[in-house]
Structures are given as C-alpha cells and as structure tokens.
Amino acid sequence: MHELSIAQEIISIAEQYFSSDEKERVKSIKVKIGKLQNVLPDSLEFCFNALIQNSKMEKAKMVIEHIPIKLECKSCGDVSEQEGFLFVCIKCGSSKITVVSGNELTVSEIEFEDSPTNQEVLP
C-alpha cells in the first residue's frame, strides 16, 4: 500500500503551486505513472480521494497518464513498446537494451477553474 505515501507526496508537491484560498479552484492534478513503478491506479486514486475528503480541495480529481514500457535495443536500434516485463528486444531478441520509458512517477500538471467574476446577478 505504498500508494498512500505516493498520494501524500503528490498533494504535498501540488500544494506548493497554490495558496490556501485557491484550493477550491483546483480542478485536477495530472500525474504520469510508468508501468515499472508498481503503482496500482485504483489504490492511488482511493488514497488521493481519502486525503482530500472534507478539505477545500475535495472537488479535485487526479488524472493518471499511464506510461508504457519502451525499450531501445543496443544491438539493432529498434525502439518498441514492451507489453510484458521481459527486457529483451522484441525485434531481434537481444538483451542489450535500455529502458526509454516506464519508470516515470511525476506530477505533471495542475488545472484550475477560472476565478469567479464579479458579475452582478440579475434579479
């Protein structure tokens, strides 16, 4: 259940980008999660929602961008997505590969609702 620690860190980083008064306007926090990170999206979302419940930020959503494992082969130069977790080139079978993507675990964007305008409400 390391998702709880991760959710706490996501909120802690995000909170550095807005004041307490702006919390209600946070619409979404976008995170990138690589397949190699062992993070269960449902658990992360559950923890995130539990942590912001009854806070000014409770309407905020977490948006997860899943990053696939991509390997670059040092033998044949192929760059391909790897569906499973075998670290061999899917073209030539070489194990001389480098992981191009799949290790990501980042807070990438925060989206805010626009500030309420001072429009007069018509009777």
Partner: peptide, 15 residues
C-alpha cells in the same frame, strides 16, 4: 481554465 506545468518527481523529497 488555467493550466500550470509542474513536471516534478513524486518521490523527490525521498530522493
């Protein structure tokens, strides 16, 4: 709608 780019590692404090 306002969008802020963050791009920071979640575990940066640990790191």
């Amino acid at each position: 709608m306002t969008l802020i780019t963050v791009e920071r590692k979640v575990l940066e404090k640990n790191d």
